[in-house]
């Protein structure tokens, strides 16, 4: 379970990110017209992520080859790709909302896995689940600490008054 959520899915996601340059420039330009400020892409990625965070889906992907195939296709294409495509064009506020939600999700899942007395996934043991829960809380905490440090003391060249803010006009 830990391996699936913290290794396999992130790797698949990475694969999607690497796909961006493969897409023809013209197609990307067209897609951008439907993706002002990166909003649509991030929403798409969020929804797909929500689906693959369901314990049911994770379970099914280990028992049902069709679902496994769906995972191998959709994680790169519906999460990694749109994320990498939309992120650079997302402004401060859109990124902020996404990151807040992202961090909150780590805390939610970590909490869920840690305290749930029942096994959320039938195919994994309780110990594995609780270990994953701990990892997720640590990752969420780490992300939050990094964000806090960046905001408190970091450098924001893109936001300096000389360059244009957030979404380029």
């Amino acid at each position: 379970m830990t391996a699936q959520m913290l290794v396999q899915i992130p790797l698949l996601l990475m694969a999607g990110i690497l796909l961006v340059p493969v897409i023809p420039t013209r197609l990307r330009a067209r897609a951008a017209r439907w993706d002002q400020g990166g909003v649509s892409g991030l929403v798409l990625a969020t929804l797909a992520m929500a689906f693959w965070m369901l314990p049911r889906s994770l379970d099914a992907s280990t028992t049902d080859p069709l679902v496994a195939l769906a995972k191998f296709l959709t994680v790169p294409l519906l999460i990694g790709l749109p994320l990498a495509f939309s992120w650079p064009r997302a402004g401060f506020i859109v990124r902020g909302v996404f990151l807040t939600e992202f961090v909150a999700t780590f805390f939610r899942l970590g909490w869920l896995y840690r305290v749930s007395p029942i096994r959320l996934c039938n195919n994994y043991g309780l110990g594995d689940q609780q270990r994953l829960g701990n990892y997720m809380l640590w990752i969420g905490g780490g992300l939050l600490a990094w964000l806090a440090l960046k905001l408190l003391a970091g450098n924001f060249k893109s936001l300096s008054p000389s360059s244009s803010p957030g979404a380029p006009g």
């Binding site: 401060f92 506020i93 902020g96 909302v97 905001l151 408190l152 003391a153 970091g154 450098n155 924001f156 936001l159 300096s160 008054p161 803010p165 957030g166």
Partner: peptide
């Protein structure tokens, strides 16, 4: 977030 962006633009960061 909007206010955060504004503060960062003018003062560099929240600190």
């Amino acid at each position: 977030l909007d206010a955060m962006r504004g503060v960062i633009r003018v003062y560099g960061n929240l600190g």
